[in-house]
Structure formats: structure tokens, C-alpha cells
Design a protein around this nucleic acid. Structure first.
Length: 263
DNA sequence: ATGGTGGAGGGTCCA
């Protein structure tokens, strides 16, 4: 079973890129982020025409995530449970989870957090606390394998950044962000790509649109899969598919694909 | 001039 994560930066602007990629890569499941559209405007017909059903948690203009699958999607939960009612941003569409072929999957769009310091950075760190609590309390106690894919907006180490010094104070690389990310790993989750490529450097999933970043390979690795022990035991491969980033009118992210040995 | 680009939406905000 192959599961992909792809921050598309607007499903409307990226529809042709996404459908051609689905037809070519044919993942069983595709976890999308940054749809930037409301539920009612999601292009279900075009997605179905290439063989996928979609469960969507959308929002006008910003955020928005979806789970696409060639197989049945069951037990969908929209929104990160346990949101703080006092948090004005708690209703942002950044989390959706469901079960496909016995695997609990989630599409995650973690807050960017810039600028640092400030309320957006505080919100990012609080959101990571909420994500950790949900994983610990609801997902890990279950017996099914769990695969949490998405745009985490965290470069776990300096090996995941083209310019570590230049990004030292960026919310994607701040020690606080990395420490929160490690609290997720310390629950017993495996970061799939790093587990299979322990010594790799200079492998990225995001390149800024500006400054010729793609041509210079000035990238960041911020799109990840976190796997529960039951899923990590079934981990076969995890690869970054650079293809879509090099096309016309691309997203600024490119897909990451994990393969799990499940029936 | 200090996001140089791109997306949404029709102001700026967001990344």
C-alpha cells in the first residue's frame, strides 16, 4: 500500500498537476494540504475521473486538507480533537483522519509559525501540543497501524535545510519547533524517510518560488510521514518524488511517498 | 524600496 503526502498550494490552481500526478504515481492514498477552497468547491468530479474518492475538510482561502483514496475511506474525523475553545484560530482546517484498508491515516497541515517571536509562533507550538495529545490519547492506544502524513512545517535537523545558518531563527527550524517535533517521535513514532535514509543530506520536499530556489536546489525537508510502531514494522520504502516540482505552474512542495506492506 | 513569487480575493493576508 502506497500513501503519498502533497501540499498542493491551491487545489484549484493545481488541478491539472495533481490529476496527472495521480494518474502517473497511482498512490493508494493521497494526503493533500493547502487546498485553499471550501468543501463545496472541491473538484470531486475531476478527482473521481482519475480513480479517487476524496474526503475533504476545506476552508475559504487558507489551509484545507483532504484524504484521497482508490479504496473505501471509513470513519472520517475532521479537525484536530481537543481544540482550545479560547483559541480564535482553533477552527482552522488543518487536520483530517480516516481509515483505509485497516490503516488509520491523517493529512496534517501544521501551522507555519512565522514570524518568530509572535502569536503565530505561539499558535504553532500549541497546535503541536494538541497534535501530540491526540496521537497519545486516541491513535496509539488502538491496534491498527497509523500513518500521519503532511506538511509539518518543521525541518527536523540542519541536514534538512539548505542554509542552516540563514534559517536558524525561522519558525521551521527554531529549537522550540524541533523540540516539539521530537516529542512526537518520543511517543514511539518513526519518521519514515529519515529512518530509511539516516545519513542523507540535501534532500528536500519544498523549494520557495522566489530567488531561483528550485534551480539552485535551495530547499527544505518539511513534508513527513510519522508512523506508529505497527506501521513502522510494515515500512518498505519512503521516497521524495521531485517530478511535480519541476513542471509548469508547480506547487512549491513536491510529494513524499511511503510504502507499507499491508494487504 | 527589503517577499525579489505565488495564491486567494478584491483589503491585504498568508506562506
Amino acid at each position: 500500500m502506497r500513501i503519498a503526502t502533497f501540499n498542493v498550494n491551491s487545489i484549484k490552481a493545481r488541478l491539472a498537476r495533481v490529476t496527472e500526478w495521480l494518474e502517473e504515481a497511482k498512490p493508494d492514498v493521497a494526503l493533500l494540504q493547502e487546498l485553499k477552497c471550501e468543501d463545496a468547491n472541491f473538484p470531486h468530479l475531476e478527482i473521481e475521473s482519475v480513480g479517487y474518492k476524496a474526503e475533504v475538510h476545506g476552508q475559504k482561502s487558507y489551509n484545507g486538507i483532504a484524504i484521497l483514496s482508490r479504496h473505501a475511506i471509513e470513519d472520517v474525523v475532521r479537525g484536530l480533537p481537543g481544540s482550545d475553545e479560547m483559541d480564535a484560530d482553533a477552527d482552522q482546517a488543518r487536520y483530517i483522519e480516516a481509515t483505509v484498508k485497516g490503516v488509520r491515516v491523517a493529512s496534517i497541515y501544521l501551522p507555519n509559525g512565522n514570524p518568530v517571536p509572535g502569536p503565530k509562533f505561539d499558535f504553532k507550538l500549541r497546535w503541536m501540543d494538541r497534535l501530540r495529545a491526540h496521537i497519545a490519547e486516541t491513535l496509539l492506544p488502538g491496534e491498527q497501524p497509523v500513518a500521519l502524513g503532511g506538511d509539518y512545517n518543521v525541518c527536523p535537523t540542519d541536514s534538512d535545510v539548505y542554509d542552516p545558518k540563514g534559517f536558524a531563527d525561522d519558525a521551521l527550524c527554531r529549537p522550540e519547533s524541533r523540540a516539539k517535533f521530537r516529542t512526537l517521535l518520543n511517543l514511539g513514532l518513526t519518521e519514515a524517510w529519515r529512518a530509511l535514509h539516516p545519513n542523507a543530506e540535501g534532500k528536500y520536499s519544498y523549494w520557495d518560488y522566489g530567488g531561483g530556489a528550485w534551480q539552485k536546489d535551495n530547499g527544505l525537508r518539511i513534508d513527513h510521514f510519522l508512523l506508529s510502531p505497527q506501521a513502522a514494522d510494515r515500512l518498505v520504502s519512503c521516497e521524495i518524488d521531485r517530478g511535480p516540482r519541476g513542471k509548469e505552474k508547480p506547487s512549491d512542495h513536491t510529494p513524499v511517498v511511503v510504502e507499507l506492506n499491508v494487504d
